[in-house]
Amino acid sequence: MPDLTPVPPRSIAGIASFCDQDRFHAASRLAFGAPLPMKGFVQAGAITLARVAPTRFLATGDAGADLPARLAKTLDGLAAVTDQSDMWAAWRMSGDSVREWLARVVPVDLAADIFQIGDLALTRAGRLDVRVCRVDADAYEVAVTRSVAADLVHALEQAKTGYP
């Protein structure tokens, strides 16, 4: 039986670049020690960098990392940085048959060789906008905005019941 565990609070900064992409990417590379991902998410030291739109990224670190304030300074004038640490509620789904379970929730092709570790999908779970990341071979992270967290849990629990 696969598991559902809440992801503990983290420091999350939304980064949306202004028009000067070259300077933005150069400054980001300096700030993170790695380029921002073209798709999906990558690990840059203790920070996870995810691309959620052509010019939008999420930087996620430990709860104490205070990424929004730090990045607002580093990327001042190059990107809009917003504090999103409390905006998202995320769960980790893992274990045997986790793919079958998740396939009952999101319309994403989860085949192991198609939705790979490091891939990210912005999709729908019923009527909820969700962000799905494949974080390990048999583990996914699903995030929704905080106010609908209870609905996502219901959808996940519902999809889990009654299956062998």
């Binding site: 939304g14 670049s17 917003t82 999103q84 905006m87 905005t145």
Partner: peptide
Amino acid sequence: DLCIEPVTDQW
């Protein structure tokens, strides 16, 4: 040149 970000759920 500007960015628009919904932040309702953050606060």
